[in-house]
Design a protein around this nucleic acid. Structure first.
Length: 1020
RNA sequence: GGGCCUGUAGCUCAGUUGGUUAGAGCAUGCGCUUGAUAAGCGCAGGGUCACUGGUUCGAGCCCAGUCAGGCCCA
């Protein structure tokens, strides 16, 4: 089917050329060849049945006047091998293959090696899962930046990276490692010791496997009571599986990114699990240790029960959840009541949505500034904030029996714990507000950050009677709770205990957003455990200063990062997992820690050779010796937070390549709290300097309703969209969106983008097609000899080049897209090309005006294809090749940004011409509706204007696309249309009185066409 | 609940320091062409500038609030 379309394309291209195929093609060709203006003439004059809407044409010649000659063969119609249909999904992989074969990326770098450097440092995506539209957006934006910078003459390398360590991968690996056992799937089992058991199928004829208990530290195969056999694995096994998993996804994503047409050193990406990378992370960590920025502390951290590890802020996500919200009465000691002069049965009322933290309660906080009151209800006397009384169930209408204008007066009251035999004090805290709860906040320093800080202030320990599994320990003091899971079992039990003890005032369900583990999706708890921290406060001010020296785009991003750094707490960097860089600490027998910068550096040197498996593979004795540490130490089991890994990339990637600091980081806006911050903090902590000069952010991909695109839809999207539409369409979508805000995506948008793509492609095509007989080395006309139309359009081109290059420079890709599309549709297609058709098709091949037009068309093609190359790398390359270029368009520089020629009278003249053209089009449309004319050539136009005279008639007719223009001097511009007089030239279809008067052999031709045909004939 | 943002035709975007009837491309409709033809050309319709108030001679733009959406945080 598609082959018929190539009929008018250039000569056959290889074995698929159409001329080898007879049959239907031939028939169509015949029909086309015989359709001449004659046919139209007959149709035009035929009965209404054939062409009823049209009135007979004016100046109808007699049939006998016509020659049978087919002038169509003497017309220079457009021809090109550049097909109208893109078939991107088929064509793009071929170009990728060619680029790979020619090592295009290296060629580009070599070509720019002398240029100024532009370093965009890639933020590493997790090597986990398929690439989705979010990735496509970010990676394509990076590529737009780099391709355009490259074409501005910069040396702009791209080293893609992947984040390989961490929970996301470790949990996936554990979850996915199923083993098929007859009749069921048995997952890898994690033991409390943190080691793993993998179920095995017994091999036929295999040696019998001993039954028995599996003991910690023991490798080997055992069978359990039910006959399943397990293989015991240590950390090295899990780490190997994780590395394989990560590598698999590095390759999958690499292929998907490459398919998008993104240029980079795909053969040598950086991976955070590379030994050299790991070594640099350890060296950076050693520097922080040396500066005293790393400490061990017992304090509340986000604890994921599902993943049995501490989490960083960035690993926590908030999801709606229903919790029991309870108001609990805390009885005051009688002596306290006497002190403030209230009845001795008075109680404080506290409100909490985490009843399970009550066993760890050590204090109560109030706001010293707020007024409080003692209310009487249900036979009780309760203290609450006055602002809250009306909102507390059962207190809505309770009389206030005693006012305390300032909470201050209640500081130091002592209460009895409602469930435990201990007492606590009331402290002041500014974080208590009158906007929720009761105005009294129960304080458990082991279970909340604010609580912890208040506890520090008053010497309260971070009591945290909860174990790694999220179950109460004996420390909680309530035997009936020990072993219960805090949320599922502990909450109801505690409510029950409170109720039976008579301290539960009210209870209801409460829906709120609650932090969840980003991996296991389970609710996290705040729990105090011994963890390692980076003392962010120590360099927070320096970090804030560094922020001011960085350019943030858009500018509002500065607020975001500032807010993130200002509210930053100490960074919990230890993780109780295997898949990561080991936290290089040793412990003495008494439990004290040994964290030695020099030992860490020695470790780094070893790791650079062998990778961090070394830490796990070497026994403690030997490892300590190797690192120059005394004997008798136990090595730590924690790994470093993955945000340390990725946040160290400036040290591991930029520094060794001499590219620190980077010119640009470009990531999604969520990275203000993520990678932008972790990178900044680590860089400032080490060297006092931000790792980037400019930070550019992109928003998120949103679906039609402006809602967040579901991960599923997005993940399904990318490879599917590329294989359906092609990478250039996806890229055009990215380039035409204002990425600084959220980026909408929908079926309609994609369909509009495809329209735009077709428009650009057809514009490229018509440029190429009209250059089929143009050889720039022989046929070029210099600009001084241009007709004025060409001089005008040459300026339009210069303006376009400046606009687009400037848009690229400012990373404003939608502006570049719009300028390109507007130029192609409005200036090229609807104006210049349309006007040029007569000249290009009908003038003598070597006519000066024709060659001048082609000179400009050629320059336009060279400019447009290069300007479009960053956005449409495949299509631009294809067009560039069709223009006869041997080397890749991506090796080119942008066209020179010459200033438009400043000639105000000339510019004004053309503004007037275009205004008159618009008037003429309007008038032509009226005649067309009145069925007086069809196409514009059937008309002649009378123009009344003060600005032009009869010398301009030819130019105006050309620009209006009509057969003739008559100018009449007159004040107000006006246009009148009438059917053209004279006869229609059979070759150029223009009407003129001169048709047939030049050469009796060509009675149907105008003088121009006669001349051309005569010249052709005498040449052949 | 808090911080930082966004909201202009069906879609994607312009809209200068506040200043005439708010623009472009695409899409839509109606024509034309059949020598760019799974194309091309012309004309037309389409906007309460999210909403409500305010400042001003004058507001898409400045201020306050409301609604919707996003990211981050609690």
């Amino acid at each position: 089917m598609a082959r018929t379309l190539r009929l008018r394309d250039g000569p056959p291209q290889g074995p698929h050329g159409c001329r080898h195929r007879p049959g239907p093609l031939f028939r169509i060709r015949l029909r086309v060849r015989h359709r001449t203006p004659l046919d139209d003439r007959r149709r035009g004059s035929g009965p209404p049945v054939l062409h009823g809407k049209r009135r007979p044409l004016p100046a109808q010649p007699e049939l006998s006047d016509l020659t049978p000659m087919d002038y169509r063969d003497t017309v220079l119609l457009p021809r090109t091998s550049f097909p109208m249909r893109a078939e991107l999904p088929k064509r793009e992989p071929l170009l990728l293959e060619r680029w790979r074969r020619e090592n295009l990326y290296e060629q580009i770098l070599r070509a720019r090696s002398a240029g100024p450097r532009f370093i965009l440092h890639d933020g590493p995506p997790f090597a986990n899962g398929d690439a989705h539209l979010g990735h496509a957006l970010n990676k394509t934006l990076k590529d737009l930046v780099l391709k355009s910078r490259n074409m501005m003459g910069f040396f702009a390398p791209y080293i893609p990276g992947w984040d390989c360590h961490g929970l996301p991968i470790e949990t996936k690996v554990v979850k996915e490692s199923f083993v098929r056992v007859p009749g069921s799937l048995i997952p890898i089992k994690e033991l409390p010791s943190g080691e793993f058991l993998e179920a095995k199928v017994e091999l036929p004829g295999g040696a019998p496997i001993p039954k028995g208990e599996v003991h910690a530290g023991e490798e080997g195969i055992k069978a359990d009571d039910k006959g399943f056999q397990y293989e015991r694995h240590g950390p090295l096994y899990i780490r190997r599986k994780c590395a394989e998993y990560a590598q698999r996804y590095v390759e999958i994503q690499r292929e998907q990114f490459e398919r998008l047409g993104i240029f980079g050193d795909w053969e040598h990406p950086y991976r955070t699990m590379d030994p050299a990378y790991e070594a640099e992370v350890l060296l950076l960590f050693a520097d922080l240790v040396e500066k005293g920025l790393v400490f061990e502390g017992l304090r509340p951290v986000f604890w994921s029960i599902g993943c049995r590890t501490a989490l960083a802020e960035a690993e926590v996500e908030y999801q709606p959840q229903i919790d029991p919200a309870i108001d609990v009465e805390f009885p005051l000691l009688p002596e306290s009541c006497r002190e403030v002069g209230i009845s001795e049965d008075a109680r404080l009322l506290i409100w909490t949505t985490t009843p399970w933290t009550l066993p760890a309660n050590l204090a109560v906080a109030l706001n010293p500034e707020l007024p409080y009151g003692l209310y009487s209800a249900r036979g009780r006397h309760l203290l609450v904030a006055e602002a809250r009384a009306h909102a507390i169930p059962g207190l809505e209408n309770a009389p206030c029996v005693r006012h305390f204008p300032r909470g201050e007066e209640l500081l130091g009251l002592r209460y009895r714990h409602p469930l435990l035999p201990r007492t606590g004090l009331v402290y002041g805290a500014s974080f208590v507000t009158g906007e929720s709860g009761t105005g009294f906040v129960h304080i458990a320093p082991g279970h909340g950050m604010e609580d912890y800080l208040l506890g520090q202030e008053h010497g309260l320990p971070p009591l945290s009677p909860v174990d790694d599994e999220g179950r109460f320990t004996e420390e909680c003091g309530l035997p009936e709770l020990v072993g219960l899971s805090v949320r599922e079992e502990g909450n109801p039990k505690i409510i029950e205990l409170l109720e039976s003890a008579g301290f539960l005032w009210a209870k209801r369900d409460y829906e709120h957003d609650y932090p969840h583990c980003w991996r296991s999706k389970t609710p996290i708890i705040f729990r105090s455990v011994r963890q390692w921290f980076i003392d962010v406060k120590a360099f927070q001010q320096e970090a804030l200063r560094a922020i001011e020296e960085v350019e943030w785009l858009p500018a509002r991003a500065r607020n975001r990062i500032r807010g993130a750094v200002e509210s930053r707490r100490d960074w919990c960097v230890s993780r109780q997992r295997y898949w990561g860089i080991p936290l290089p600490v040793f412990y003495r027998p008494d439990g004290s820690a040994v964290l030695e910068p020099e030992a860490i550096r020695k470790l780094a040197r070893e790791v650079a050779k062998e990778g961090t498996d070394l830490w796990y593979a070497t026994d403690e004795e030997a490892l300590a010796r190797k690192l120059g540490l005394p004997a008798g130490l136990r090595k730590g089991a924690d790994t470093l937070d993955v945000w340390i890994d990725s946040g160290s990339s400036h040290a591991a990637v930029l520094r060794p390549r001499g590219e620190f600091p980077a010119d640009l980081y470009l990531e999604g806006s969520d990275q203000h709290r993520g990678w932008f911050q972790s990178s900044l903090l680590l860089s400032v902590a080490r060297s006092g300097q931000a790792p980037y000069r400019t930070v550019l952010t992109n928003g998120f991909v949103m679906d039609l309703d402006g809602r967040k695109l579901s991960k599923m839809a997005g993940a399904r999207g990318l490879p599917e969209f590329i294989s359906q539409f092609g990478a250039d369409i996806v890229r055009l979508w990215v380039a035409s969106e204002d990425y600084r805000d959220d980026v909408p995506f929908s079926q309609e948008i994609l369909s509009r983008i495809s329209d735009t793509y077709r428009l650009l492609r057809n514009s490229f095509r018509i440029l190429l097609a009209n250059l089929h007989d143009f050889d720039p080395s022989r046929n070029r006309v210099s600009e001084e000899d241009f007709p004025e139309l060409e001089r005008y359009m040459a300026d339009r081109l210069r303006i376009l080049v400046r606009t687009v290059v400037e848009a690229y420079r400012r990373y404003e890709f939608p502006a570049a897209c719009h300028a390109l599309t507007r130029f192609c549709s409005t200036e090229l297609s609807a104006f210049y090309i349309d006007v040029l058709k007569d000249r290009l098709y009908c003038d003598a091949a070597d006519g000066t005006a024709r060659r001048a037009s082609q000179t400009l068309l050629h320059r336009m093609a060279e400019s447009l294809f290069r300007l479009a190359a960053p956005i449409l790398p495949f299509t631009a390359e294809e067009a560039w090749e069709a223009l006869g270029k041997k080397a890749s368009v991506h090796l080119e520089l942008f066209p020179e940004e010459a200033a438009p020629k400043s000639d105000p009278p000339f510019a004004e003249r053309w503004t007037r011409i275009l205004e008159l053209r618009a008037l003429s089009n309007e008038a032509l449309e009226v005649s067309r509706r009145a069925k007086e004319i069809g196409k514009a050539l059937e008309a002649e136009v009378e123009v009344q204007t003060p600005h032009f005279d009869s010398a301009d008639e030819e130019l105006l007719a050309e620009v209006f696309l009509v057969s003739r223009v008559r100018v009449r001097r007159g004040e107000s511009p006006a246009v009148r249309v009438r059917p053209a007089s004279g006869r229609q030239c059979a070759r150029c279809w223009k009407y003129s009185e001169e048709v047939g008067k030049t050469d009796p052999a060509h009675p149907a031709l105008c003088p121009r066409c006669t001349g051309v045909v005569q010249a052709n004939r005498s040449r052949s």
